[in-house]
Amino acid sequence: MTILIVEDEEILRKVLKEKFEENDYSVVLAMDGEAAINLARKYKPQLILLDLILPKKDGFEVLKDLKSDFELKHIPVIILSNLGQDEGIKKAFDLGAIDYIIKTQHPVNEIVEKVKHVLLTGNGHNNR
């Protein structure tokens, strides 16, 4: 199972990579929005964890691009951001995100659990 993690903050990227690898996922990392699209095309991951504020192209645009790409639109996308404004959350769901996680509100293990759950059931739980 391959997951693509799009995160511009190095420390967070490091912890996420370590945690997911520990749980037997292969991890592809992207540091900005453009790389995210390119890597998604190249690796066709089973799931994408997507930050919103990113260099080059923001997460909403990345999400829009993914969902309008015939080959990528079926890949479940979980937003992993520290923005928590109601409109932003709504916008992410409207654009087709399967879940929205505010980073500070969850231990890293819980994020791994959420990813497992989505991959197992195909459902996000709208649990903010």
Binding site: V15, G84, T104, P107
Partner: peptide
């Protein structure tokens, strides 16, 4: 403010 304050807090928490 949310993003700027929460990012380092997340880094501390997860690490």
């Amino acid at each position: 403010a949310a993003h700027q304050l929460r990012t380092p807090l997340t880094a501390i928490k997860w690490t």
